[in-house]
Design a protein around this nucleic acid. Structure first.
Lengths: 329, 329
DNA sequence: TTGTAGGCGTTATCAC
DNA sequence: GTGATAACGCCTACAA
């Protein structure tokens, strides 16, 4: 910038003003400055800019893995974040709390302007630490009650459970099973509660022994297929709390010689890109990730307004996607 | 930091020295400083640090999408990058060259310490621009000859084609087909050449009309299933140049009533996580992404050594993964 | 071993 | 409308 000023024969302040465009500069000098910028291929130094303005101009993203649906989330968030003129700094905390800790410290040190947080477990060490700072946070898909002034973006999980139940029982299934995610996650409890309640409300049966506990992985679905169907079973339909487990279940059922959906109907949750690619394609309870990510980013960018408003919790309604993996028994 | 110095009763330089640990500091003062740091919950400002050291302490990643296998790449690179004490700044250039341009400018402005580049097309506008800077670059999976001193990490693509051919023909297939990626990408040409050459060398047939041109997407595979098998065909095996197209092909074949592998054998490339999840599971030519990403990062971190050495191009050998989607005809 | 001073590239505040 | 100057938080000669 000093060089630019020299070439254009003006002071650095004038150069700064031309660049920002927020102040009046005579057209003649302005164009001299512009051509000097071009000539030198000058680029502003965001580090220096950030130092002065106390803003790194980026958004941090904390997620517990790169598998779906997180990969989709990363893509969506990146789009909205860059569109807002920020950059995405992302960290995978799958490997444990130490990594999470390091990453959060890094985000603070870099003066991020906001964080989208979706931790592995709900008892994360990071949130209390973040509470000490003034960094805007959005909790994605995880609902805590630790911090009062935190913004929350999540699926209406109970409704998701009810939707799956209504679909399956409506199809005519009388005896259903389910595979849950990690039980320490509130969202799993909510989904299970909605599912359970709606199933019994509609007069169908969900035996306690037909509730398998998984961890949202393909292998958990595989294992559940054994637990549920290795012996003869009266269950004709299963809801898995995410697509990956549903796909694992389908895969396991194929190995067991059971046909989907003829012998067993399956419904997943999320609607990851892969759901339409399987054979049979997977019916699922869709999470509107696009709207959710958009909301997360816009909450971050207009954070102050929100923190003063009462409405800081955004619950999105799930949507049923009918494909091939479920039918009437 | 000023505050820390005040509390500890020392000067800022002493605090700096304690933090860096590179200089001798008396144990007494050092511990006073440390407790002051703890007391104030002080965190160094990476923006200021970067301004002085002219290093943002991060690595940029430019990729043409978040679908597989890029999602896996992101995860792997993030791991190696953070392990080296850097952060990952990533941008998806799927939406076009303007976005790529903006992102690259941002990376330069942020003083990234290196860039892993995997563009959509090989005629990217970004490379020439980057050539003007001294930022270390690693070209991932894309081979250009634009820049002499660029580091390259890629699969041995011709070998991948040969491997697929040997496997399929070895199984007994006499008439094979293939689906390629975008023809303007060198890697696709290389894969095709290897496949073609090896097929004919082994005395099997690959008709020109049985070479479908795709774009690495699921839908391209779907379309190819129509083009190849909607009418009666003598082809009994297909190699798709990536897994996503192979999965699309399987999906299309199922809709056509053809069974895999009984009627048609299929082999993919990449070995994305989903390859083992499909029914039937997908046999494929594996790209050793882990080793490739590790190499990319370590090339970036030790760039200077490499730029002086002759060996700046790393080609990794593919590996055959036998699963269920291919068998003898 | 420790302190002082200057500068990294910006922008904001004051003069002119 | 424009220029000098201070300050953001850090590091590093150089001095003490």
């Amino acid at each position: 910038m000093k060089d630019v000023a020299e070439i254009a024969g003006v002071s650095v302040s004038t150069v700064s003003r031309v660049i920002s465009g927020k102040f009046a500069v005579e057209e003649g000098t302005a164009s001299r400055v512009r051509s000097a910028i071009l000539q030198l291929d000058y680029r502003p130094n965001l580090l220096a800019w950030g130092l002065r303005s106390r803003s790194g101009k980026f958004i941090g993203l904390v997620i517990p893995g790169i598998h779906e649906p997180f990969a989709t989330m990363i893509g969506l968030l990146e789009e909205y974040v860059t569109r807002g003129g920020y950059s995405l700094l992302f960290g995978n905390t799958e490997s444990g709390p130490e990594k999470e800790n390091i990453f959060i410290d890094d985000l603070i040190s870099r003066h991020v302007d906001g964080i989208v947080f979706s931790g592995v477990s709900e008892k994360s060490l990071a949130l209390p630490k973040l509470a000490g700072t003034d960094i805007p946070i959005v909790l994605f898909d995880r609902v805590f009650n630790a911090r009062e002034n935190v913004v929350t973006v999540a699926l209406n999980n109970e409704a998701a459970g009810r939707l799956a139940a209504r679909y399956l029982v409506g199809l005519g299934h009388r005896r259903v099973a389910t595979i849950t995610g990690p039980p320490d996650l509130n969202l799993c409890k909510d989904r299970l509660h909605g599912f359970k309640d709606e199933v019994s409300r509609l007069g169908a049966a969900l035996d306690e022994r037909d509730i398998e506990v998984g961890d949202f992985s393909f292998d958990a679905g595989l294992k559940a297929s054994q637990a549920l169907f290795a012996r003869k079973s009266a269950v004709t339909a299963v809801w898995a709390q995410n697509d990956l487990m549903a796909i694992g279940l389908m895969r396991g059922l194929a190995s067991l010689g059971k046909r989907v959906p003829r012998d067993v109907s399956i419904v997943g949750a999320d609607d990851i890109p892969f759901a339409r690619m399987t054979v049979p394609s997977l019916s699922t309870v869709r999470q509107p990730f696009e709207a959710m990510c958009r909301q997360a980013v816009s909450s971050l960018l207009g954070y102050d307004d929100l923190s003063r408003s009462a409405n800081r919790h955004f619950a999105f309604d799930p949507e049923l996607v009918r494909r091939e993996s479920a039918q009437s028994p």
